[in-house]
Design a protein around this nucleic acid. Sequence first.
DNA 1: CATGAATGAGGTTTCATTCAT
DNA 2: TATGAATGAAACCTCATTCAT
Lengths: 193, 193, 193, 193
Amino acid sequence: MARPRSEDKKQALLDAATDAVALQGIAASTALIARNAGVAEGTLFRYFPTKDDLLNALYLHLKTLLCEALQAGLKDMSTPKTIACDVWNSYISWGLKNTLAQRAVRRMSVSEKITPETRQQVNELFPELYKLCQRAMRQELMTIEFEDFGDALFLALAETTIEFALRHPARSQELISLGFESMWRALAQENPV
Amino acid sequence: MARPRSEDKKQALLDAATDAVALQGIAASTALIARNAGVAEGTLFRYFPTKDDLLNALYLHLKTLLCEALQAGLKDMSTPKTIACDVWNSYISWGLKNTLAQRAVRRMSVSEKITPETRQQVNELFPELYKLCQRAMRQELMTIEFEDFGDALFLALAETTIEFALRHPARSQELISLGFESMWRALAQENPV
Amino acid sequence: MARPRSEDKKQALLDAATDAVALQGIAASTALIARNAGVAEGTLFRYFPTKDDLLNALYLHLKTLLCEALQAGLKDMSTPKTIACDVWNSYISWGLKNTLAQRAVRRMSVSEKITPETRQQVNELFPELYKLCQRAMRQELMTIEFEDFGDALFLALAETTIEFALRHPARSQELISLGFESMWRALAQENPV
Amino acid sequence: MARPRSEDKKQALLDAATDAVALQGIAASTALIARNAGVAEGTLFRYFPTKDDLLNALYLHLKTLLCEALQAGLKDMSTPKTIACDVWNSYISWGLKNTLAQRAVRRMSVSEKITPETRQQVNELFPELYKLCQRAMRQELMTIEFEDFGDALFLALAETTIEFALRHPARSQELISLGFESMWRALAQENPV
DNA sequence: CATGAATGAGGTTTCATTCAT
DNA sequence: TATGAATGAAACCTCATTCAT
């Protein structure tokens, strides 16, 4: 992969795109993104041949960052529940610390501009992590057919929790643990309170 | 005198908008919507002064339809769990029967074009129903501060379930009951398997 | 001339058009004019087959009103200067009392929508009056070729005076007499202060 | 790098706009202006972000040209009257040579699209010139409160003269000097014929 | 390689006018 | 006669993309 001249510029473009998409959705203009990245309008197209390419690259990029945060957040791997708890907390706290990134991802994920290929690549980012959690999951959710479903339920609950924590910062700690409790009851094999 | 404004045309516009937004997001053009509704482009703006007004009206309209389906779906009100189950099944089956409507709603709900006022109106559509379910909910989720959170978790799980059921029609029945089981564990007071 | 059903409606349309044109120029929409006149959009076109017809009718109407005010304002016909002074004062005070009408006329008079025919009709409204003033005018301005020019100079000075008097109400009296003095010096045969 | 913004194109746009506004008023379409300037419609909006911006820029531009003509026209500065005469003649002859520009200015000046800021900038173009004339003006018109009024009367008479000279080219010389005589009588301190 | 001027298709919205009621 | 719903051309403006510099 011939890397472009300046990795800095590419990064600046992704950062600017994150903010723009978070605030304006995928309708955010390439001109705005380039300007906020501090590069010329035409330069954007040297790094991303197409706006759609930029969006797909951004989606993958942000999901990768999230994934790295999850991996870095694993501290106590003694029991499935502590693992799940670490993952949950890392997820939520990444979303809270990177509000715009989180919002950008949400907006892109419902868009038809993100191709199935990109979605597939994103799925492949997470496997190990989920394997860890899944050990604790209910039998029904552990069959090959349904493990994606379990993941999706996990993500749905986490995203909802992030949203509420952002909306009600004063009660964010309570929401986060209430959310975790709900997730654990929903998905885990045993439900010891 | 003069011909009366036609409720049919308004309906045709909302229907056409549903399909267009489902497929292309809120970027779907008014020209396309009008054409598919079988009216002139200028006519659209007699019924909805602004594209944003159309989107907000559409959002409210679809959520109203969903709400009516939920109310119509209440059959067995003997126990909290049967109530919750009816609601769950109605929700999912409305989503499955009205794929485009469901997709349109999802896309609009993450858009900044839907105003807080509209969102508030939508919230007010649902109260009785949720009261019913909430009787069965865990204490923690029944405080005023957290009942919205409980609702949101319910919706998140249901939407995820709909999405998977659409993607895997052959296994939709299993997914639906697996989803219900997860929701019930997550949110209900008692967790008898 | 078969008069339309309701002279009231026609009048209401002209009044509404006056305000609309004063505020928005000839771009003011027929829909707005009709609404402010309290009639339906289509009704406007029963009284004025075309928007241009409405504008021309309005121009003639307002100039007629002005002309009537000038004639009514003649009080002291003893000397040319008192006549001129009465005309001047009537003109200015009509402009000040009918700001919107005055502004509407100004905007229409530079527009290509007002036809030469209408402009000719307007010219024909004023003759007698000007004959009176002209007795006092300089020889050079009394030849057939230049009497229109003298009229136009009179009007130009009067309109400028109105504009300034509107802009500076506190000093309007001074402006009006300063304007009159200037007009009299410019156009009259003798210049006794 | 990248091709520089072309002053030629900007000029072509202003020229095309002058003609279009002269003939059709401020309602002249951006499409027509761009086409007559030989550029794409989108290009117009790179030079003038808004149609209103174009109109304001055009107004300022034309008034600047006029002002330059007035300054270049000063030849004999020996007496106030010769100065005034040079200014008068330059003004009229600029109007005659630049009919469309003159007409465009007239139409724009009664429009609400021209902002107070632009009007202020235009006022500031002229001060020195008027100072020259004002030395000859009547005391009453030399007070700070009324010097603007004197200017406006001067302009009103000049514009009227231009209009008549255009309408009657055969007699334009007579009209011009008749106009000057009237202006001088109206505004100057002494009125020696 | 980087730039940003240029493009023109396409977006939303307005509006004079027509015509079914 | 009066109405106002319907129309579609045309308005202003945006934008992804190209390409001369």
